[in-house]
Simulated assay, not measured.
Amino acid sequence: MYLQRQQLVGRTAFITGAARGIGYCTAEALAEAGASVIMSDMISEPLEHAADRLRSKGYDVKTHILDVTKPLACTDAAVRFNEGGSSVDILIANAGISWKDTRAEDVDDASWARVLDVNLNGTFWCCRAFGTYMLQRERGAIVTVGSMSGFISNKPQNQVHYNASKAAVHHLTKSLAGEWADRGVRVNSVAPTYVNTPMSNVTAKLPEYNDIWMEGTPMKRMIEPEEVASVNLFLASDASSGMTGAVVLVDGGYTVW
């Protein structure tokens, strides 16, 4: 009974930022659970390479090029995969970017706008587009990808724009969850710590960052993307059917101190 609730056979999932890292591992996790997966990202070559890796394992995978900062493109994607008898049952709004260490007073307008546009606006455009169809069917599960940086202000790096964007994703998640709960659509978020992905690894190799990060992490290690993907699978499946508006920390204990 309980393992069955984690199965996704007969369901279709759309995942943004799926070419690598957390997005790729989440695509693999959901496909392993039986879902048909639509992997989306901005650039074709790495996306197709990632999809081919999963297809070689026998998984049902499609791809779609998507810039989540374009609201019309998000709407078009939702229309494409929800019309003509098809439907998307699960949305993993994973696409996100970080930025170089910049003091708040030195953050330029373009950098601020870019981080907020991808991390917050892109998440909302996708939730709105795919959530509209889920509401019509009165069923669906959405998982946004926030960050422990939505709870704490990181050190030693300065990243006010990233922190603000992820805190906003958490509250967006709660707001959507409250609006949509009685119409059959659940919205939850995962909030990772420093994850062993290409986005984090450049900084993690510098001792002036990594030493302080590990000092503040009770588990004394970075989290693997598969560990975040496992939580995404749980939140996307019926195993979490009683949850909505939750922000689940996967932070190696960072926020307990």
Rank of each mutant, 00 (worst) to 15 (best):
A181H: 03
A73W: 00
K220G: 02
I97H: 04
D76Y: 07
W112D: 08
I97W: 03
M199V: 15
N196M: 09
I90K: 00
L54P: 12
G253E: 12
M214D: 11
I22K: 09
V195L: 06
F124K: 03
W99L: 09
L206M: 14
H171W: 03
T217E: 08
S40Q: 02
T173R: 01
V61F: 01
Y194S: 11
F130R: 01
C25S: 13
G242W: 02
K205W: 01
N154G: 11
R55L: 06
A110P: 00
R55H: 08
E48M: 12
A95D: 05
V190N: 03
A129S: 15
V68N: 09
M199R: 11
H171Y: 07
L120I: 12
A104T: 15
D52N: 14
A104R: 09
E83Y: 03
V107R: 14
S189Q: 04
T244R: 07
N121M: 13
D211W: 07
D108L: 08
E227M: 05
G17S: 10
E179P: 00
D182P: 00
A18T: 08
D109F: 13
T12V: 10
I22V: 15
P156K: 12
K70I: 07
G84C: 10
I223D: 13
A113Q: 15
V68Q: 10
V228R: 07
